[in-house]
Design a protein around this nucleic acid. Structure first.
Lengths: 221, 221
DNA sequence: TGATGGACTCAACAAGCGTTGAACACACTG
DNA sequence: CAGTGTGTTCAACGCTTGTTGAGTCCATCA
């Protein structure tokens, strides 16, 4: 259940990284699975219920642990939330990869990368938690903003030479965000279960147009 | 501030519509503005903070009233939420009107109607409240689902003769939902301040394609 | 063995929540 | 005038929340 050994990332309990008293004499900082269990339980709770409705007690119960231990390890609910939602994905991959693959398939490549990233269960839990919490929690909203900026807006505006790159990036953001909401959070059919290929064919040209084609040529109503 | 006289809709305090004891002898059911003030304050609070973070005490304070009075009028927080978010708009207008305007301008017409509905401040508060609460509150999520069904999915699937009408409706839903999230809730620039005409030209062709063109013809990545 | 200190639990705190029931204020009827 | 019912407030209840501090358990090391 615990993803991998986090020997350099996890500072152990609240006291922090470098042990102050030399190599202490007591019990070794036992490589317990508990901390990772709590993180996993937190991701599940935040994804299912959002930040406000997820409780420390609920997370602790899910991990089979006392609520106080959660605070002991992470300091506060907010800090737990931040740590639980740290993304394993390197930034810029989705869109940057798409840009490198050639401009004529840019839209389709972005949609495919986006969907394949989200369809992985571990990532899906983190991003669902982020989205579900974003609308009532400022920290989560900032996370989404930064994620969009890093993953979509930044690479797009950097790569495109056009002057209205920011609006184009925003348009891509609306389409991808709406897709994520319906498919992963609200789980509305048939888009929730549609195969990736079908969505790539449906949404790819949309993003392609937002990024590379003329946006002023639409017909008016 | 109070929109209009609600002589037939407002049943007065909690006892309900028809007075049991004939035309009662006591104080007349004074046409107080308070009830409408509370509703307005509730819409504001729900829109800004979402269902969970909005409190009865906060709404009462905003309306200059005791918290108990809120419960006295509406019975519970949940019931207040439901009543505060009842939409004044007749159902089916947005998409049905677009369908009636001719199929070749369908996409642009829908986007325009959608934006003009939301840009009205009163409606915007209600829909923002609904969206902001939808991800953590089941009632709000049902509202959004029913609204999408009534306003988008239903008319579209009824009007289009194509077999994959449901997926097409979903795709329209993703684009409009994402647009609403970025423009009205997250308020990300430049899409938050873009003029309606510009968005109509940018998004109209997308919806047009989702509704009437061939979706299998997209290029693959 | 005995000391150490980290893993972990227990019981409780203070704050905030939705909600309640009794009460006061007042406009109206008879 | 007395009586009545509505508008409104007050003070409190019961509950849940995040968080705290003291304390227990036990693997490790001198």
């Amino acid at each position: 259940m615990h993803q991998q050994s986090d020997n350099d990332a996890a500072p152990g309990p609240i006291s922090g990284g470098a042990r102050p008293g030399g190599r202490g004499r007591g019990r070794r900082a036992g490589e317990t699975a508990t901390r990772a269990d709590i993180l996993s339980a937190a991701r599940g709770s935040f994804a299912e219920r959002g930040y406000d409705r997820a409780t420390i007690r609920g997370i602790a119960g899910r991990a089979g642990v006392d609520p106080a231990l959660v605070i002991h390890y992470f300091g506060s609910k907010e800090a737990l939330f931040v740590e639980a939602l740290e993304l394993p994905q390197r930034p810029g991959d989705v869109v940057s990869g798409g840009l490198a693959a050639g401009r004529e398939h840019l839209g389709a490549t972005i949609v495919r990368a986006f969907l394949e990233t989200w369809d992985a269960p571990a990532t899906q839990a983190q991003l669902t938690a982020m989205l579900r919490s974003a609308l009532t929690n400022d920290t989560a909203m900032d996370m989404v903003r930064r994620l969009l900026l890093r993953e979509v807006f930044g690479p797009v505006t950097r790569a495109l030479g056009v002057p209205d790159a920011q609006l184009r990036a925003d348009l891509v953001g609306t389409q991808l965000l709406g897709l994520a909401m319906l498919r992963y959070v609200a789980r509305i059919e048939p888009v929730a279960s549609a195969p990736v290929d079908r969505l790539v064919r449906a949404l790819g040209p949309t993003l392609q147009r937002y990024l590379t084609e003329d946006l002023a040529a639409g017909d008016d109503g």
